[in-house]
Structures are given as C-alpha cells and as structure tokens.
Write a protein that binds this DNA or RNA. Structure first.
Lengths: 336, 336
DNA sequence: CTGAAAGCGCTAACAA
DNA sequence: TTGTTAGCGCTTTCAG
C-alpha cells in the first residue's frame, strides 16, 4: 500500500493538518517544519491520493469532453485544441465519445448528475431544449462547442453565414450553375449541413438564381460516398460549373469524382469546401476555414471561467470564418 | 447539494448499509426492502457519488491512455480502438497527450504513482529500461501498444518484418532501384522508421542489391515535408522506380511530389506505404496494413485481463501485418 | 436479512 | 504556528 498522509505526519513528528498545509502551500507553516515534512515526503516517496482529496474538497479536477466520435478530422481538431489547452491547467480530460443518439441521450443525462466532472465540454452535439435546460440549471458548468443554445455558454459557428460566404464567392467568380453536396440530414448528429445549405439557397435567391433540385445532393458522410454521389451532378447535360461541398471531406470526394470523370479542376469545375481540416491545405482546396482548433481553445477558456464563477447570462463567442482561396476555384469567363 | 446515501436511507427507513447493498445488487436483500429503497432513490433522483465510492473501494474505474499527440491518423485510429472498446466496460478514459520528451518523462513518472487510474495504456511511446522496470513492478497494470519491452505486457508491431515485406514486394515486382523515405530518426518519439528501414536494408541485401545513400531520405514527419524532400529522389538521373515510404502520410507526400513532377503512378513510379490509415484507401495506396484500430482493441483486452489478475509473465501479442496491393504499385517490365 | 459503525485519505475548522 | 477532529459519501465488516 502507498504511504498516506498519516505516515508522513508520524515520520515528520507533526500532525496531519500540518502535512496537509505544506501539501497545499499554505503560507502559515514555519520554514523548519515545512522542511521536515518535505523530507519525510521524500523519504517515503509519498504522493497524495487525489481521490481522497477530491472527496474532501468536492472538486474532481476533471473536465469531461463529449463528442460524436473519433472519425472526423473536424472533431479531432477541436479535441486537439481542447486537449492542449487543458493540459496547461490542473484539469484532467475524460473522453466520452457517442456512437448513437441513444449514447448521446445517456451521456447527456448521466454525466452531469454523476458528480464526476467539474466541467463539461460538448463538441458538435446540439442539445434539445429539455437537455439544455438541465445543463443550464445545475452543476457542472457546461460549454457547447460548435452548437448553440440560448441558455448555455457556447462557442458558436455561423454555418448560415458560412454558407452564404462560400456561395457568394462562387457567384463572384461568375459561376451561376452551382451544385451543393452535403451530409444526409436525417442521420446527422449536427444540422450544420442544413444551415450551410440554407445560406447557399439564400444567396442564390439574392442573386436571382433559381435553385435546381438536381444540383442538390445529400449523402451519408464520407469521402467515398461523396465521390460516388457527385457523379449524379455531372451525368447531367447541364452540369454545374462549381460545387459547394458542406465539408472538406466531401469536397475532396467531389474532387476524386472530377478526377475520375476527367474533369479538370479548376478549369472545368470549381470546388469549395467548409471546415479547414488539415487535408484541405494538402489538396489545395479552397474552403471556409472555421478555426477548428481555436474553437477548442476558446471552449476551454470559457469553461474555466464558468467554473470560477457561473456567469449570470450564458456567454457566447462566435468563431470567425475565413474564406481561404486556393487552387480549386477560379473565375469563370463571363460568356455563359 | 445532491442527495446522499443517508438521505435515501432515511427516506426508505433503512440503514445506509442496506441502501449500499441494493446499489451494488447484493442478493441478500429482501425483495420488499429493495423495492422501498429503489422508490426512495427514484423520488430523490439520487445518484451515488463515484468519488466516494472510489475512495472506499480503492478502485478508480478509470483507465489512463498516454499517446504522443492527436495529429497523426495512426495514433487516432489506435485511440479509437481503445475508446470504443473501453466504452463497453465500466471504465472511463482519461486522455494524456504528450507534446515533448519532457512531457513523456513527467507522465511516465507521475501518472502511475498518482493512484488516479486502475490501468494504464501507452500508445506508440517506448519506455526506457528504467521506466519499464517501474511500470512492471507496481500498480497500476500497464500495457504498451505499438511498443515492446520484455518486462511489460505489449501489443507488438513487427516493424522490421513489415519493412521486409514491403521491400520484398517491390522486388518481386521487378523493382531494383528502390528509394526509402521515413521520419527523421533523431526527433521521432518512436523508432518505427528505423526498424522499417532495417527491414528494407536487410531485404536489399538478401537480393544482392546494393543500398544507395542517395535513395534514403529522412525528414521531419508530415505530408508536405515528405513531398518536398522526395524531390531529391527524382532530381537524380538515376532515379528510383519505386519508393517505400515509412508511413502512409509520407507515401501520400511522395505521391504529391510525383504528381508535381509529372511522374505517373504506377507507370513511372511505384509507391508503397505503411500503416493502413483510412486515407490510404482513398488515394488507392498500396500499403502494409498494421490494423491500427485492432491494436487498440487488443490493448484494452489485455489491460482488462491484467487488471483482473496480474500475469506472472508479461503477455505479448503481435498484430498481424497485411500487405494490401492497390493502385500505386505495378510490376515493372524485366528489361532494366 | 439488516443496522450500526469503522474506515478509505484527505481538507478545513477549531482550539490551543 | 500547530495538533486534533469532524466530516466528504460510500463500502464493508460485525453483530444481531
């Protein structure tokens, strides 16, 4: 068995209270006794039991992170931002990955009431109103990353605005036939595709461009699925000259498809993605960068502040979106 | 404050011991009293405090996972295997990501003695002999994934054998000028490149092929770095007809480079990778698949068994390597 | 089958 | 400046 605080106290000829004080850097300990205690600690190779400490103080020194899963670069990048920021603090990171809606419900219900974490970070999983109310009302403080709810602190991504931004960019490049490819709405954990599509539609409207159903594809997430599904866009005699893909992974799938069909990018087809995952840079993909990593950093900061003192009103932070023009888009000649 | 076991006991008119028994499914509780307790629990919306439970039982119900970082697909895939397997158990996953050798030393030293985890999983971070001895000797049980040490349980990857396998394959395809591109040895956390390179050299030797220094490139990890560094291979008038890249990410970098230089793959250049990351499939890369996900699964299983009962001798499991021929390699015509 | 009580290792309030 | 002690919420003997 490991030595306890009592062993140290005995060895140093002091009370456990004193040992506790030096453990917690209390200023009110005589230098001499502090030394003695430190020596005893050293000799016994003592290390305080964090569990006992947690029970006594009521703090777990732990932050829970719930995310959809570990398969998408966007989640990983956010997690990376969270992890690296948290590593600089005294808090540990407990990871919860949800595989299904049922998992999500279970986690949302159990983790907060389990008194296991001092704070909770939820990535890319929008809570229902009912769930949100529970998060808002009680411990532990909770912060949403890439999701929004009026009653909870959140790091918000303006998907609608981003959808507009991407579409507007293509239109400025003289594209008028613009396809959209995104996640299947029914099975997604997160409605980002829906919002981005809304921004797309709104922008077409603004420019008086009539949306065409044949230009809109919703498909199960994944590069390969996107690649296959994108074919439909180009079988058409009146194929789009540009595609806005709801995420970079799907954009890359569209590029795969173009490659397969012998379409040159950007000469024959412009492609713009969304997210700014690391791969986007490698394939030279024009995209809306949403600062994934930074969203994790900000989320942690916000959470730590909430843990210090719960704000009266839920704090909101909007991550700036940035269009990064790269090699997959080009200005179309006017003659169209 | 949340209700405690005492509140439940009072409400149900029983002792706390009894409540504890129903909480832990002890068979020796009369059905009637069990019901009463359950009702009280329900009414109070009581949930046992896991911290208190941990202090009392000495079990933390937590497994620690240490890995180099969250940037490489190979680590993530292993983590995914770990996470999904652990999620099926009662254990929580605490994530530690090391950013530097110093981090690694600190984690290796602190985490085991901190009594914070019931078991420890170390991914792709080989311990020194001294560290290994400490892991072996004391709690918590530890298993290495993608690393080997005689005194610790480990899920082993035969990098040397894999290096041979890849090289042998290229030679069978009639390649004789075979380049190698891998991680810079000095800065790597893990010596896998070194081992794979050893297997490469050994195989050249076996076939009487003289290794050429100009064919060997060691560069900081990353797709872009690989892309740039690979140029040196082809500036040469006597350029290799095939490249074995030490990992898939670098192999993809080599493909980028070939693309840039107008080299056709596989007609002008064959490329084989190592790892079997998800992207390898998308870019149709021939590779040595090391079952990354599975290594995480097996690691968890081994750890859980060790936590049940520490084995007398460290257990060893070797992950099977599988060569997956895809579109980046082809048989070279004999005339060379 | 059940209640009472003794810890688990620590912190913090209270005295001294 | 320090020692003593009462918890923190639970599990687990030990009686009964």
């Amino acid at each position: 068995m490991s030595p306890t605080i009592r062993d140290v106290a005995k060895k140093a000829n002091v009370g456990v209270g004193t040992v506790s004080r030096v453990l917690n850097d209390s200023p009110q300990v005589k230098e001499e006794t502090r030394k003695a205690v430190l020596t005893a600690i050293e000799e016994l190779d003592y290390s305080p039991n964090p569990i006992a400490r947690r029970l006594s103080t009521g703090k777990t020194l732990t932050v829970g992170v719930i995310l959809p899963n570990l398969t998408r670069s966007s989640y990983i990048e956010r997690l990376r931002g969270v992890q690296e920021t948290l590593a600089k603090t005294k808090y540990h990171l407990v990871l919860y990955s949800v595989g299904s809606k049922e998992d999500q419900d279970a986690y949302f219900r159990e983790i907060p009431r389990s008194q296991m974490v001092d704070g909770l970070l939820i990535i890319s999983l929008p809570p229902s109103d009912e769930q949100a109310e529970r998060f808002a009302k009680s411990k532990p403080p909770t912060v949403l990353i890439d999701a929004y709810h009026p009653s909870i602190c959140s790091v918000f991504v303006d998907d609608r605005g981003g959808g507009k931004m991407a579409t507007e960019y293509l239109i400025e490049q003289n594209h008028r036939k613009i396809g959209f490819l995104g996640d299947k709405l029914e099975t997604a954990f997160h409605p980002s595709t829906q919002y981005r599509f809304w921004g797309y539609g709104k922008t077409l409207e603004k420019y008086g461009i009539r949306p065409k159903d044949e230009y809109h594809i919703f498909v199960e997430h994944g590069r390969l699925n996107a690649r296959r599904a994108a074919q439909k866009l180009f079988n058409n005699s009146d194929a789009p000259s540009a595609v806005f893909a709801s995420c970079d992974t799907q954009a890359i799938g569209v590029m795969d498809c173009a490659d397969e069909l012998g379409l040159r990018i950007p000469e024959d087809l412009s492609v713009i993605g969304f997210d700014g995952i690391p791969d986007a840079e490698f394939v030279n993909l024009t995209t809306i960068d949403q600062n994934l990593y930074q969203s994790g950093v900000v989320g942690v900061q916000m959470l730590l502040e909430s843990m210090q003192e719960l704000p009266d009103n839920p704090r909101k932070h909007t991550i700036p979106l940035e269009l990064i023009p790269r090699g997959t888009t080009m200005k179309k000649k006017e003659n169209n």
